[in-house]
Simulated scan of single mutants.
Amino acid sequence: MCRWLVYSGTPVLLSDVLYRPVPSLIDQSLRSRMGVETTNGDGFGIGWYTDDIDTPAIVRDTGPAWNNRNLREISDHVRSPLFFAHIRASTGTAVQQTNCHPFRHGRWMWMHNGLIAGFDRLRRDLLLTVDPELFPHIEGTTDSETMFYLALTFGLDEDPPGAVARMAGLVERLGHQIGVEFPVQMTIAASNGERVWVFRYSSRRESRTLFYSTCVESLRALHPDVAWLHRLSADTRIVVSEPLGDLQGAWNELPESSYGVIPAQDGEMLAAFDVHGLTGPGIG
């Protein structure tokens, strides 16, 4: 599988989040503690937004993140209020640049950890469902990119949670038709540059790990002597496949079958998620 990270909040250098924590996402590319694979060396990608450009920048490569000098160089010079970072462990598709995350279409970024079980048999039917106007923009061969373009087809611009639910529901329905018992395994991050949506869901209800950071004000109260916490805005959040660093009380597991919004909408960061639609009130 893969490991990924989302940062949203006070503009910081990418290196502050990618490299500085111990363990960091770069450490996880070589020694993941919670992933299906210990090593995630089948490529990496970073994407970020700036204040004056609507579309995100994307940098991707097929080599491992832990020894990439260009990634180190970029991360020491790029400052952003919102960025994605992803380290890849292929589930069977080719190790090539167009298969590395994050994926981009217009103002949207998307990245994924997990898989569509039976994707080799489902791929044709899934791709035929993609909006014909969007289809030419698909560059790679992964299930992750297919999920992205299905979500775009199902209204990601207007209703991100609903679009992702419809996408996952379609995968489950088609998977069940060919005898795949548990078609969907996913943690997903999507952003339009203004907000970030993160999802944790699987058909088996045993989803890959996903954690979000405790609110900055609470962390300041817990750790009043940690200087860098005082430089962050109250709405700063990080979402990760597995925790970074060792700051006590910093991380909370995203509940099974739920999604989160950053910055929070109507004071609620988390809500229940179901492939047949959204259910229940906010839970966070």
Score class of each variant (00 low, 15 high):
Ser32Glu: 03
Leu122Ser: 14
Leu278Lys: 10
Pro132Cys: 03
Leu82Glu: 02
Ile238Arg: 02
Met147Lys: 10
Met147Glu: 12
Arg208Ala: 12
Ala94Ile: 10
Leu25His: 00
Gly35His: 05
Thr93Ala: 14
Gly114Glu: 10
Thr141His: 10
Val59Arg: 02
Pro56Gly: 05
His137Glu: 12
Thr187Leu: 09
Ile53Ser: 04
Asn113His: 07
Glu158Phe: 07
Ala117Trp: 00
Val196Glu: 00
Pro11Gln: 01
Leu82Asn: 06
Arg166Lys: 15
Leu278Gln: 14
Thr39Asp: 06
Leu71Phe: 13
Pro132Tyr: 07
Pro161Tyr: 08
Ile26Tyr: 02
Ala189Thr: 03
Val22Glu: 08
Arg205Asp: 10
Pro255Ile: 08
Gln248Thr: 09
Thr91Met: 12
Asp51Phe: 11
Gly92Pro: 11
Asn70Met: 12
Met269Ala: 11
Gln96Met: 14
Thr93Val: 09
Pro11Cys: 04
Val17Lys: 04
Glu172Phe: 01
Cys215Val: 15
His276Asn: 15
Met109Ile: 08
Leu232Ala: 06
Ala163Arg: 06
His101Leu: 13
Ile87Arg: 03
Asn252Leu: 11
Ala189Cys: 06
Thr10Ala: 07
Ser213His: 01
Asp157Tyr: 04
Ser144Arg: 07
Leu247Gln: 06
Ala117Gly: 07
Tyr259Gln: 10
Asp125Pro: 06
Thr214Phe: 03
Asp157Leu: 12
Pro243Glu: 01
Trp48Thr: 07
Gly260His: 08
Leu278Cys: 06
Gly267Ser: 05
Ile138Met: 14
Val180Ile: 15
Met109His: 11
Ser258Phe: 04
Tyr7Thr: 07
Asp246Leu: 11
Gly280Trp: 04
Trp48Ala: 06
Val6Lys: 00
Asp159Asn: 15
Leu270Ser: 07
Gly155Ser: 07
Trp108Lys: 04
Ala163Ile: 09
Ser257Trp: 00
Arg123Gln: 15
Asn192Ala: 05
Val239Trp: 01
